[in-house]
Amino acid sequence: MTQETSADRREITKQVKIPNSLGLHARPAMQLVDLANRFEASLQIAKGNQLVDAKSIMQVMTLAATQGTKLTLSATGPDATQALAAMAELIAEGFGEE
C-alpha cells in the first residue's frame, strides 16, 4: 500500500510552445498520449480555456495546436515532475519534425 503525501496532490504546471511547422497533428498527438500513459500522474493540457486529458487521444486531437501555440501542461500525482519534464522535452524537440 502506498501512502499519499501532500506532494502527490499538489498540481505542478509547465508552459510549452509547439515548435514544428505541422503542429500537433495526429502522429505527434499519439506520441504525446503514449508518453503520458506511461506515467501514473493525472496529466492535463490546456490551450487557453480549453482543458483536455493528456492520456486521451480523442481529447488531445481537439486542441488543434498549430505551430507557435502555447500550451500549459499540468500534472498531479507521484511522478508528476518526471511526466511534465518528459512531455515538455518531446514537445520542445518538435516530435522529431522540422
Binding site: H25, S56, M58, M61, A65
Partner: peptide, 17 residues
C-alpha cells in the same frame, strides 16, 4: 494549409469524443 487541416481535425474529434 497545415493550420486549416488541424482545425478540421479538431472539428472531427470534437464530435467523435
Amino acid at each position: 494549409d497545415h493550420d486549416r487541416h488541424l482545425q478540421a481535425m479538431e472539428l472531427v474529434f470534437g464530435n467523435l469524443q
